[in-house]
Simulated assay, not measured.
Amino acid sequence: MKIIFRCDPALIDLLPRPVPARAALPGWLRAMAPRVESAVHGREIRTVKQCPPFVDAMRHGVMLVLPCDVAVAPGMRFSWDWPLPELSVPGHPRAPLSFHVPEQVAGSPLAHGVQSALKFNSFWTIELEPGWSLLAMHPANRDDLPFRTVTGLVDADRFNDVGINFPAVWLDEGFSGVLPRGTPIAQCCVVPREAPALAFEPMSDERIAGYADVASKIMAGPGVYRKGFRDKEGRGRA
Rank of each mutant, 00 (worst) to 15 (best):
1 M>T: 07
2 K>G: 12
4 I>A: 14
4 I>L: 14
7 C>W: 06
7 C>S: 13
11 L>G: 10
13 D>Y: 11
17 R>I: 15
17 R>E: 14
20 P>H: 00
21 A>H: 06
22 R>M: 07
24 A>S: 14
25 L>D: 10
28 W>F: 13
30 R>M: 15
36 V>C: 14
37 E>F: 15
40 V>I: 09
44 E>F: 09
45 I>E: 06
46 R>M: 15
48 V>T: 09
48 V>H: 10
52 P>Q: 04
56 D>T: 08
57 A>W: 04
59 R>S: 15
63 M>S: 09
64 L>F: 08
65 V>C: 05
65 V>W: 10
66 L>C: 06
67 P>C: 11
68 C>I: 07
71 A>F: 07
72 V>W: 00
73 A>F: 02
74 P>W: 00
80 W>N: 11
81 D>M: 08
81 D>R: 12
83 P>G: 02
84 L>V: 15
84 L>K: 08
85 P>R: 06
85 P>N: 04
90 P>N: 09
90 P>M: 11
91 G>W: 05
92 H>Q: 14
97 L>K: 03
98 S>I: 01
100 H>N: 13
102 P>D: 03
104 Q>W: 02
105 V>T: 06
110 L>E: 00
112 H>E: 09
114 V>K: 10
114 V>T: 12
114 V>N: 05
116 S>H: 06
116 S>W: 04
117 A>I: 09
118 L>M: 03
119 K>H: 12
122 S>W: 02
123 F>P: 08
123 F>H: 10
125 T>S: 10
125 T>C: 06
129 E>G: 03
131 G>L: 04
132 W>L: 12
132 W>F: 14
136 A>R: 07
138 H>C: 10
141 N>V: 10
143 D>L: 13
145 L>C: 06
146 P>I: 01
147 F>E: 07
148 R>L: 11
149 T>Y: 05
150 V>S: 04
154 V>K: 01
156 A>G: 03
161 D>Y: 05
161 D>G: 11
165 N>Q: 15
165 N>T: 07
167 P>A: 00
167 P>R: 00
168 A>F: 02
170 W>N: 00
173 E>L: 01
173 E>I: 10
173 E>H: 04
174 G>F: 01
175 F>H: 00
175 F>S: 01
178 V>K: 00
178 V>I: 13
178 V>H: 02
179 L>W: 01
181 R>Q: 12
183 T>D: 04
185 I>Q: 11
190 V>L: 15
190 V>K: 01
190 V>N: 02
191 V>K: 06
194 E>R: 03
196 P>V: 11
197 A>S: 14
198 L>T: 13
202 P>K: 04
215 A>K: 11
216 S>H: 08
217 K>F: 05
217 K>I: 09
218 I>R: 05
219 M>L: 11
220 A>V: 10
223 G>I: 07
226 R>K: 14
226 R>W: 12
229 F>S: 12
229 F>E: 08
231 D>I: 01
234 G>D: 04
237 R>V: 08
238 A>I: 08
